[in-house]
Write a protein that binds this DNA or RNA. Sequence first.
DNA 1: CGGTCAATCTTGACGTTGTCAAGATAAAAC
DNA 2: GTTTTATCTTGACAACGTCAAGATTGACCG
Lengths: 223, 223
Amino acid sequence: MPVKKYHHGDLKNALIKAGIEILAKEGVHGLSLRKVALKAGVSHTAPYSHFADKQSLIAAISTEGLRIICEHTEEVIRRYRGKPVRQLIEAGWAYIQFALSDSAHFKVTLSSVLEREKDYSEYVELSYKCFSQLVCIVENCQAAGLLRPGPSDVEAINVWSIVHGFVSLYLEGQFYHTILERFTVRDLMISSLGHITLVDLTPRTYARIAASPRYALQPVGTI
Amino acid sequence: MPVKKYHHGDLKNALIKAGIEILAKEGVHGLSLRKVALKAGVSHTAPYSHFADKQSLIAAISTEGLRIICEHTEEVIRRYRGKPVRQLIEAGWAYIQFALSDSAHFKVTLSSVLEREKDYSEYVELSYKCFSQLVCIVENCQAAGLLRPGPSDVEAINVWSIVHGFVSLYLEGQFYHTILERFTVRDLMISSLGHITLVDLTPRTYARIAASPRYALQPVGTI
DNA sequence: CGGTCAATCTTGACGTTGTCAAGATAAAAC
DNA sequence: GTTTTATCTTGACAACGTCAAGATTGACCG
């Protein structure tokens, strides 16, 4: 148990971690600089030694969210090497899993909580890395003839849009029980991606994929 | 010029209107109950006679956003009767136009600013009406053999997801100049929807659709 | 027409928030 | 060992959401 010192030592990361925890417990609405500082055991203005303002802390938390998405995608790419459509589906599924399990963190990362995101270079870089991973998967699919040809970045946008839109609307509460009672979230996602991939999702194939064991997210640290 | 009276007469709607105006000028961040009250010319607690709390005003503003979307969609359905794919594309385009021209209002309406949306019955009803309109368009497309068969509500989710995800990521600043320099937003949307509809979007067809005159949004009142 | 009542609006207050200024502390640099 | 610099604290301020108490007024009822 480290003795409480005047200088924290790693306050910046402690603040980011505290912020993510508050997001999980109290949602976007409950996130305040003062609560974050209190949780990290410092005074209410201590964060200003590490972040210019609240938006700056939010940028750091968002960047952490992108890092999580990146790491999950990387793991998926590695695990399903040589199976491009599977990479696509499981990467989408990992994205959705993160959004559902840490919805407030996901919203901060990718739902317009952060403003002027271009001002935060690390966020921009990681965002670009995430997109590049997706472009890579898309190109694999195209090379295998399993996805419509065309500019891979445009097709990547299409894939990302459908998965992102799906989970955003879901979190927004826009899907009604009449639908959610009949299908699982994963089945709905696969149905969406079935539009994009050229794989023939016959009812048999569809049922097989939908019934396959689900990709369980590992804690980030263990990947 | 009406004399200023103690009783406003239509304060509730005035507050909603003031809120939407503040959203347009200062964004989601700048929306406060006190500023809305000031803009409507009443004291800072007057809104509490009409709204239980800030979330309740936000719900009313969101509901107004849904109403706008509904009315635009209705107009599109009427204008392109008998051309289901065109209905789909123009409804999506109207959705995107609203999101781009009133982005803060759009975000409040459909980007997790409103919490516990289920508590606001008028919002839920309008949300359901919007979705029903889309299901109707989807069924028209399916009947014409221009969209994959299957449960029309599931296909509606797919269509909505791709358009919503696309515009959300765009507003989030996730699309890079390398893409936006080569394609217009409308072309990108049509490319997305091209995955979903079974219409053969050959380069010629594609070019023709993309070059067609754009659907200019009318002010809601004039529709 | 006069009185009652409920809806509407105001004044004033409270705790919380983001942010700034000024100063205290301790680690690092010389 | 002294100075410098990064880090953290205390204290203050305006803006915010919200509540309590009271003022104003239009509507309803005799």
